[in-house]
């Protein structure tokens, strides 16, 4: 029995370096099954509940696809409408009910800390599929897998995180994990949307140096990974200011002219205008592959947690 069996995955911080490496290695083995080349019945007879209090098509479908590829079944709901939640049922009660129907629970909830609360009320493993502005560990694992798969390692890689680093939860978890794994981090954002000091402190505690920059040109030449996130309009009281800021963090062909050949450009998607469409055709663009990687990573996690041994 693996150390993973029956475990909750609530935050990337719950996973050690060894845990993360196990998930990534397992995910790589899952790829032939994820693309339909190989068949697996590893999770036959197992039931996964996907309970989504707010819609998230990408996350939900990748969990459903992952479970189906391993021969398991999925039940659940994709929004709180029409469920007992609307009648005022507490999350604690919903979880105790769902526990009786399934072997593991995937939860998406608009409030921070919901997954940890859920885990307190069930013996079944809980996977956090996003809780408000809090954690989204499977997205982080998917990002880590993409970096590892494309670049071969984490140590010594120059990873540049670009965009809204203040409010973007994906970049917080990713920065945290990359610091654990020994990457060099550079944070590029408008001055008003810089990475919170708590994350910077953690990077320092790991004995790693980091750079803070406000422009892309100065950092792109040394980068191995460019992780781009969206800057949301609502963060700026003045729409003109938003246009100016968003424009200066756009990835265009010109910017990539001096980049390393092996540079990869990542984005959690959906993108709006952060990456010019002609970048899609370059070898740098891995964001669609990154989106696909959500399936083998979630397969790996489900297989390890439910003891499938695929």
């Amino acid at each position: 029995m693996s150390a993973f069996q029956g475990r909750d995955v609530l935050s990337i911080r719950d996973l050690s370096r060894a845990d993360i490496q196990l998930v990534l290695r397992t995910a790589r083995k899952m790829v032939p099954i994820a693309v339909g080349e190989k068949r697996s019945r590893a999770l036959e007879g197992k039931i996964l509940s996907t309970i989504f209090y707010e819609p998230s098509t990408r996350t939900r479908l990748s969990f459903e696809s992952a479970m189906a590829r391993l021969g398991g079944r999925v039940l659940g709901f994709s929004s709180a409408e029409g469920t007992s939640v609307q009648k005022g049922e507490t999350l604690a009660d919903t979880i105790r009910m769902v526990e009786a129907y399934s072997d593991a629970i995937v939860l998406r909830h608009p409030q921070e800390g919901a997954a940890r609360l859920a885990a307190d009320f069930t013996e079944k493993p809980v996977i956090n599929a996003g809780d408000g502005a809090g954690q989204h560990p499977t997205q982080t694992l998917q990002d880590l897998y993409t970096i590892w798969d494309e670049r071969g390692s984490f140590e010594g890689q120059n990873v540049v995180l670009v965009g809204d680093l203040k409010y973007g939860r994906t970049v917080h978890s990713l920065a945290y994990a990359l610091a654990e794994l020994g990457s060099h981090l550079t944070f590029v954002s408008p001055p008003t949307l810089e990475m919170p000091t708590e994350i910077l402190e953690h990077v320092k505690e790991r004995g790693l140096s980091f750079r803070i920059a406000h422009g892309l040109e100065e950092v792109v030449r040394d980068a191995d990974v460019l992780y781009v996130t969206r800057i949301q309009k609502e963060r700026f009281p003045d729409p003109q200011e938003y246009e100016k800021v968003a424009g200066s963090y756009r990835i265009e062909m010109d910017l990539l002219r001096d980049a390393k050949r092996g540079l990869i450009v990542m984005h959690p998607l959906p993108r709006v205008t952060e990456i010019a469409p002609d970048v899609d055709r370059t070898k740098h663009a891995v964001y669609f592959k990154q989106a696909f990687n959500g399936v083998p990573v979630r397969m790996a996690l489900l297989d390890l947690i439910l003891g499938g041994g695929a």
Binding site: Q111, L117, D131
Partner: peptide, 13 residues
């Protein structure tokens, strides 16, 4: 202090 924390809504915790 986080108004959107699950501990600030009607849950039995």
């Amino acid at each position: 202090a986080n108004p959107n924390c699950i501990s600030n809504v009607r849950e039995p915790i």
